[in-house]
Design a protein around this nucleic acid. Structure first.
Length: 857
RNA sequence: GGGGACGUGGCGGAACCGGUAGACGCAGCGGACUUAAAAUCCGUUGGGCUUCACAGCCCGUGUGGGUUCGAUUCCCACCGUCCCCACCA
């Protein structure tokens, strides 16, 4: 018996698959389609264990569907534009393009080691002009449709990356990549009208029944639709210039209109800015407001600040009543109209503000159990249900009725209307960077913004750029910018902003269906494959990539490029890879490869391998270079084999949860690989001896049960459970050795099923086993095993018997025994009857095939 | 502040639709093989108690209640952990 040596065997099978080109799929393949896609990687140059888990999961599904008779599209590409290439250029003087393509070459080799069932013929990188040129083409089409516009806007400026960020890319006031504090800056920027699709994007979520609820909720919250009233307050006394028409506010609580005691405007509201020009006091206040931070702690502890402008507005329904207009720091210019009416009794922020500045607090919602004469609001606003009071024509109505009535009355007097407001902003896609897709427009002094003619696409990036100065190298390139205007022929300049890399990843799944198409998307190919049947990636893209891709797909659908509105029918968000951390007493992190672990009973100690220095075992955290708690995939492959690594990252935790990398765990997976091989090897060598007892039925039933279990586990994304069942089955197989002449034929059936069942997880091992048992062709081309439902149950059952809900014994009965027989047998059982002595049997509950419960009293 | 997820042995986790809690793996313990170690194989492993033994009993899925013949699973309250969003009117 030879030991299984993955180092020799795994490369052999990868070469065999490549030679036979088994994973190439044709768009004309008549079998039912299945599009399996994992989020494509950024070509950093090295794969990490997180990639291994992500792509192993996708490969299990792809190989499974393939075996089940689907034409599986399983492509791979590179999300290749972005900052790291420019950083490398600035730090090491390398060319971003050369750097990126070198990384791609290195990573492709590493990914190929994983033995993934990928159709590499469809590979592309988003930095290929052949890709981004097509992106420029559809960008121009969206421009014609009015979905692209340019405006001066206050933007999030990342001072480290020297570029603009979209709202989605600002986390706690910091850039998502650089972690630098984001500044506000006014710039003319390109935007995509994602807000045109706000309603669609919310409605569409309801159709995504194979998405995690969590992601759908996150997107819904991010879009943040709210319905309310947009209304105008007229100024009492003189109106400021430009505000003769009054001051517009937005509210979701029109029912509390009679409880209003002030109007508030944001510090960057146009009215506030106008007033600051004339008043140093106002200017100073606004400047103070801008200093506030945006982190959790800062917002939590931030004090409400306000300044009375001295202006007053009239209450629309109470003749003679006027309200003061304040500038307040807690009002946001980018939500609603940047102005509110404050109703302190029923909004906590308004209440805090009113208490601080001595503004009136008038309750207008009466809680169900309160009396109008005595109900008071103290330091806590009342936001619960109730009836309206103190409110003229709204008195006695419920909150919902009063909202509707207030909107109707305001509309009747022409002072406003019901309005829907979104938290979602238009998507700012301009980036002041070199390594991105050039925005294909030309600025002409005479003609304005002119789209580049389609015949000139792709607008390619120049290779000869310098990174010796900060800022965008395209701006200082000697020639690239200067082109004649396509419209009038006069000297003009190219746009030097490039597109956010999230644009690149918002349609790549469609390009994979025909990466060589002349059009951006080959409609027939896209119709053949889209939507993606199963998409797998990290939860961190819940509102970034996954929202942008849904929007772009809708826009492209309206343009007629694709037929589907939703790009991803099924989504699975996988957990991260974690590892224990180790540190020296000095606090310096230590690489796990330098650590020796010792166990004494249930306590564990860590030492430095070379010096024996005692180490501190730290928390289990996401693998990261900064904590040094990473393991290099290539070293693992070298030591345990690719199959063992794939198996372990899928076996130890449910796929949606984080998995902790442990040496013991991957060793266990390696042992399984060896034991599976030994089972096939021994079958081939063993000489079967005649036996007295035929035990084949038990093994046959076990085989059909395992087929059912593994099939269901892959279907339901419960890889860990399926693998556990395979371990169990292998243990059971040992009880039916190949030397047992009675089971030889059934054993062959069992091994044939086993080889195919493990093939999605450990594809190399499966091939070698298939070869050893004399299977036809390669296991990768073998059909998925089928089970006979009649054989997935046992012929005889061991039923537990409870007395008053406590387990007191068990009985052995035929699977088809009648309820009466089961009942009799349970009552007659010796160990059970002890607990029945002297008591009356009141009821016997027989759950067929499950349990018997005898109720006594 | 709003929304969501979760809580099971020393550890990762399993348990279909409410039906034998702890599958499977890791770690541990005992043994076989070996001159020895590694590797491998076999056995054992939630806690407590009774028993020479066979076996049996009690407790046990964060805490406290409830529904039920029966609850890790359903309901209510509380405690704790994690994630997302957030002065969003």
């Amino acid at each position: 018996m030879a030991r299984y040596n993955p180092k020799d065997i795994e490369p052999k099978w990868r070469a065999a698959w490549a030679d036979a080109d088994v994973f190439r799929v044709s768009n004309d393949d008549p079998r039912p389609k299945y599009y399996m896609l994992e989020m494509f990687p950024y070509p950093s140059g090295n794969i990490h264990m997180g990639h291994v888990r992500n792509y192993a999961m996708g490969d299990v599904v792809a190989r499974f569907r393939r075996a089940q008779g689907h034409a599986v599209l399983h492509p791979m590409g590179w999300d290749a534009f972005g900052m790291p290439a420019e950083n490398a250029a600035m730090e090491r003087g390398v060319n971003p393009k050369a750097w990126t393509y070198e990384n791609i070459a290195a990573m492709r080799e590493q990914l190929k080691m994983l033995g993934l069932s990928i159709d590499w013929s469809r590979e592309f990188a988003t930095c290929d002009p052949a890709y981004y040129g097509k992106q420029q083409a559809w960008f121009l089409k969206l421009m014609e449709r009015g979905l692209v516009y340019r405006k001066e806007a206050t933007v999030n400026w990342d001072p480290v990356d020297m570029t603009v960020l979209a709202n989605e890319q600002v986390i706690d006031g910091r850039g998502w990549r650089s972690d630098a504090l984001v500044e506000k800056k006014k710039l003319t920027q390109w935007f995509l009208r994602i807000t045109d699709y706000a309603d669609d994007l919310i409605e569409g979520l309801a159709t995504l029944d194979r998405w995690p609820d969590k992601v759908r909720t996150m997107q819904e919250n991010w879009i943040g639709r709210s319905t309310g009233l947009q209304m105008t307050f007229d100024f009492a006394g003189g109106a400021p210039a430009d505000f003769e028409a009054g001051l517009e506010v937005y509210t979701t609580r029109p029912d509390t209109l009679f409880g209003a005691s002030f109007l508030g405007i944001a510090p960057d509201h146009p009215l506030a800015e106008q007033l600051s020009a004339a008043s140093p006091e106002v200017a100073a206040f606004i400047a103070e407001c801008r200093r506030g931070g945006t982190s959790e702690a800062e917002i939590e502890g931030a004090e409400k600040l306000g300044l009375d402008t001295g202006l007053r507005v009239a209450h629309p329904f109470v003749v003679g009543e006027t309200l003061p207009v304040w500038i307040a720091n807690f009002i946001l210019m980018d939500y609603g109209t940047g102005a509110i009416f404050g109703c302190p009794a029923h909004d906590q922020r308004d209440l805090d503000f009113a208490r601080k500045y001595g503004l009136p607090v008038k309750a207008v919602v009466l809680p169900p159990d309160a009396h109008s004469a005595t109900f008071m609001v103290g330091s806590e606003a009342y936001t619960g249900p109730g009836r309206i009071f103190n409110s003229g024509f709204l008195d006695g109505l419920t909150i919902e009725q009063a909202k509707a009535e207030a909107v109707t009355r305001i509309e009747a007097i022409g002072k406003g209307k019901g309005a829907t407001v979104y938290r979602l902003r238009d998507w700012g896609v301009s980036r002041q960077r070199y390594w991105g897709c050039p925005i294909p427009v030309i600025h002409c002094k005479a003609c304005g913004v002119v789209p580049a003619p389609v015949s000139q696409l792709p607008i390619e990036l120049p290779d000869d750029v310098t990174f010796d100065k900060p800022g965008n190298p395209l701006l200082r390139h000697p020639t690239w910018r200067f082109v004649p205007c396509p419209a009038c022929g006069q000297a003009a300049e190219r746009e030097t902003d490039t597109l956010d890399t999230f644009v690149d990843s918002s349609w790549y799944f469609a390009r994979f269906t025909n990466p060589d198409a002349v059009d951006p998307i080959d409609k027939a190919a896209a119709d053949r494959w889209l939507p993606v049947d199963q998409y797998i990636g990290g939860i961190e893209h819940a509102v970034l990539h996954l929202l942008y891709a849904r929007f772009v797909t809708r826009a492209l659908k309206d343009e007629g490029l694709v037929s589907v509105a939703e790009p991803f029918a099924g989504l699975f968000t996988q957990g991260m890879l974690t590892h224990e951390t180790y540190a020296r007493q000095s606090g310096e992190w230590v690489d796990p490869s330098r650590v020796v672990l010792e166990t004494a009973g249930n306590t564990r100690r860590a030492r430095l391998a070379d010096t024996g220095e005692a180490l501190v075992i730290g928390d289990i955290e996401k693998m990261s270079k900064s904590k040094k708690n990473v393991v290099a995939p290539e070293e693992i492959f070298e030591q345990y084999g690719v199959d063992a690594a794939r198996l372990f990252v899928l076996s130890d935790s449910p796929p949606e949860r984080d998995v902790q990398w442990t040496t013991g765990g991957v060793e266990g997976a390696g042992r399984f690989v060896q034991r599976v091989w030994a089972e096939f090897d021994s079958q081939a060598e063993a000489v079967a001896a005649p036996v007295d007892e035929d035990r084949s039925d038990e093994l046959r039933r076990a085989t059909h049960k395992i087929i059912k279990a593994v099939t269901e586990s892959v279907d339901q994304f419960k890889f860990n459970s399926g693998i556990a069942r395979l371990y169990e089955f292998l243990n059971l197989l040992k009880a039916f050795p190949a030397t047992d002449g009675g089971v030889v034929a059934v054993r062959a059936e069992a091994l044939s099923a086993l080889a195919r069942l493990i093939s999605p997880y450990t594809p190399h091992l499966a091939e070698e086993c298939w070869l050893r048992m004399g299977g036809e062709g390669m296991v990768v081309d073998a059909p998925w095993p089928e089970f006979d439902p009649a054989l997935t149950t046992d012929s005889e059952l061991l039923l537990p018997v409870q007395v008053n809900g406590k387990r007191r014994g068990e009985i052995r009965v035929p699977a088809d025994a009648s309820e009466l027989d089961v009942r009799e047998k349970a009552l007659a059982d010796e160990t059970v009857s002890v607990h029945l002595a002297g008591l009356t049997v009141r009821k016997v509950i027989v759950v067929p095939g499950r349990i018997v419960n005898i109720v006594v009293g």
